[in-house]
């Protein structure tokens, strides 16, 4: 530890100073600088804040590292980093790295992941031995859609293959799916592993977003569930897969077949951001690979709407390749405070 700077876990009374730091040094309009409800939803766990902070000799915050715990009741669980910022031109060029090191030493996570890392930090993560990459962005377009107002689809729309290996049943609660999940043998070794409390809080109790749940079965056997969210813009709407919880080897096929559900809907498309899915069996079927297309546009930013494709980079300490989704970390959250809970 350097003498000029002290690193410690944040206390609840640090909250307003962390929010002020985000406002001053990240973005003046950043929602976490203004919205305590969302701040607490993401980073308040019982009576502790999930933030490591670096302070100078005057006790002024000069760096923060926020994280989200996937199972806060147990030790050595997966965590995702959500916000990492250090004031530039400090005397210690490694203060940011020390914040990560501090989290590793004090929280002792099984694995650390982060979705939404900035490009100029990729070198740092690589140096620290983390795996980095870009989430693939896939979209399946609804051939019955008369006018695309959100996306720019390919010139020739694919016909959705109507194979029926899986049944998707919409549910208003995750309770039954979670009962099935925790008795499934595949989930015991899942990376990242998320607790029941986490899923319920993240998706059922989100303060602003309303999520949809789709239980996945095959021949009456539970195979997992999909979490989705409706995207609305310009009088049109689309469905975004936020997360798929299933056996890793099945995830590609499950997503691919989920495309069949939009044919009878009024959604323009269904899209998903994900890493490490077996794209040999996936992208060539119902979905288009947006990441490698110059002509197709499936926006990611809606506050405000930006008609362009967005790359999302990730890092993970798991060397085996982890399937991460847009729902991991804090990538799927409102950016402005005026959002209200709606379908």
């Amino acid at each position: 530890m350097t003498k000029e700077f002290q690193i410690r876990m944040a206390k609840i009374e640090d909250r307003k100073h962390i929010m002020g730091f985000i406002k001053s040094y990240w973005l003046d309009s950043h929602i976490l600088a203004h919205d305590q409800i969302l701040f607490d939803f993401q980073h308040l766990e019982n009576d502790r804040l999930l933030f490591a902070i670096a302070l100078d000799l005057k006790d002024k915050i000069v760096g923060v590292l926020g994280y989200i715990s996937y199972d806060h009741l147990k030790a050595n669980q997966d965590i995702v980093m959500a916000l990492w910022k250090v004031i530039p031109n400090l005397s210690d060029p490694f203060l940011g790295v020390k914040l990560i090191h501090f989290i590793q030493e004090s929280v002792k996570p099984k694995f650390i992941h982060c979705v939404g890392i900035t490009k100029n930090t990729i070198g740092i993560y690589k140096y620290l031995g983390f795996n980095t990459g870009k989430l693939h962005h896939y979209a399946a377009f609804n051939k019955n859609c008369k006018k695309f107002k959100i996306a720019v689809p390919p010139a020739n729309l694919k016909s959705i293959n109507e194979s029926k290996s899986y049944i998707f049943t919409g549910t208003s609660s995750l309770a039954k799916s979670l009962d099935n999940l925790y008795i499934s043998s595949f989930y015991k070794k899942k990376i990242p592993y998320k607790s029941r409390d986490f899923f319920v809080k993240r998706y059922e109790n989100h303060p602003y977003f309303q999520y949809r749940f789709h239980e996945v079965t095959s021949e009456n056997f539970f195979k997992g569930f999909i979490v989705s969210r409706v995207i609305k813009y310009n009088g049109s709407h689309a469905l975004r897969i936020i997360e798929v919880v299933a056996e890793d080897d099945l995830i590609g096929d499950i997503i691919d077949e989920f495309a069949t559900t939009i044919s009878s809907s009024t959604f323009e498309y269904v899209d998903v951001y994900a890493s490490s899915i077996n794209n040999k069996t996936f992208a060539i079927k119902n979905f288009e690979d947006i990441s490698s297309s110059n002509d197709i546009i499936v926006p990611d930013h809606f506050e405000p709407y930006e008609k362009k494709n967005i790359d999302i980079h990730f890092m993970t300490s798991n060397k085996q390749g982890t399937i991460l989704f847009k729902g991991d970390g804090d990538q799927d959250r409102p950016s402005i405070k005026s959002i209200t809970k709606s379908i």
Partner: peptide, 19 residues
């Protein structure tokens, strides 16, 4: 000289120097 004196010496540059 330290990062206080050199604007370009940020955390990424520091990693590049080390490498």
């Amino acid at each position: 000289s330290s990062p206080i004196d050199i604007d370009e010496w940020d955390s990424m540059a520091n990693v590049n120097i080390i490498v």
